[in-house]
Amino acid sequence: MRYADGPTVEVDVHVDAPPAVVWPLVSDVTTPVRFSEELHEVRWIDARRFVGRSSHPAAGTWETTCTVVAREPERLFEWVVGDPAHPSASWRFTLTPAGPGTRLRQWMRMGPAPSGLTPAIEAHPDKEERIVARRLAEHRANMQRTVEGIRQLAEERAAGA
């Protein structure tokens, strides 16, 4: 698995709440801050762009500018990191009706543009596959915490409705 291949990771969870209840949580870019060990702050710049501030023990603290590239209420919320024409990462939430509930998926792809991972790969090209695999595992863990957190919030809201 090499960075240039655009590796991806996806997690999903069944939510006992309809898409109308889940949607406000996934389309609020600040929601993942509540669950991620890496993402610490998000603020909107304008109607389509936001800045995320993250930190990692091996990389320090950094900010990225993200652009919302798809927004289909109760179905899809997608954004890219960096240049929308050549992003360093792409992220997506997908909501699919599942009976009275929702199947919530979060997906991300690395690249194709360089990212914070690029210096580590350039410094240790012989370890690229391990570096990429470890980063994907970190993303998977944070993403799983996020969809589980959204599930809990949505189900609490649905129960209180």
Rank of each mutant, 00 (worst) to 15 (best):
V29N: 04
D12L: 01
A120V: 04
E148Y: 13
T8N: 10
F35W: 09
L153G: 06
E129Q: 15
R53H: 13
G160F: 04
G52T: 14
H14Q: 09
R130D: 05
V80H: 10
Q106W: 09
L39D: 00
L153D: 10
G52E: 12
E37Y: 06
T102V: 07
P57D: 09
T67H: 08
A141H: 15
T118M: 02
P32N: 03
A47T: 13
G160Y: 05
V15K: 07
E38H: 15
T61Y: 12
P24V: 06
W91K: 01
T96I: 05
T67P: 06
A58H: 15
A154E: 00
A123Y: 11
E37P: 12
G52P: 07
A159I: 02
P19E: 02
G149N: 08
V147L: 07
E129R: 15
V68A: 03
E148T: 15
T96R: 14
L153A: 15
Q106Y: 13
R135N: 14
W23K: 07
W107F: 10
S27C: 13
V80F: 07
G60Y: 11
A154W: 07
R2G: 13
H124M: 03
T94M: 01
T30G: 15
H139W: 14
E156Y: 11
T64S: 11
P32A: 04
R43I: 03
